[in-house]
Amino acid sequence: MFIVDYIKDVYNGVTSLLKGMRLTGYYFVHPKEIITQEYPEVKQVLPERFKGEVVMRHNENNEHRCTGCTACELACPNATIKIVTKFDITPDGKKKKALDVFVYHLELCTMCNLCIVACPTDAIKMAQTFEHSVYDRTELTKVLNKPGSKLMDGVE
């Protein structure tokens, strides 16, 4: 009886291995099943919701929608955003608070999307970039409002 069990064990063992080998062999001769992407030659188009980096929307007249309300700064858990405001003089001579510099520290950002959700005027959004490597971390500190840009008309 011992001999029979022994042979059975060996037989079952070998067939289990052969079954696995057959599957591996199947993929070896079916290169169509391969799903590898040859990055960086082939780059995947990322979906529009992908959270890669915070950017500010600007229209073609170099106008943005940020009022400098600091809601995003308060919503951010990592102190990634720093809003510097200034006072503009409106045509009728009144002082009005406006955005001066929108500083964004990409190196601190965890792409949690809380700032985007918090913004009341939809001024910022996530960009689909992901290659953020640089040689010096100071390069990751960015100013999001473009030079010379101003607030879009009608955004309060």
């Binding site: 990322l46 959270k51 792409m111 999307n113 996530m126």
Partner: peptide, 18 residues
Amino acid sequence: EAINDIMEETCGARLTMN
């Protein structure tokens, strides 16, 4: 990877979705 693609499309991230 197929699941990650689904996550990426709806949540915007593959692993730390928030």
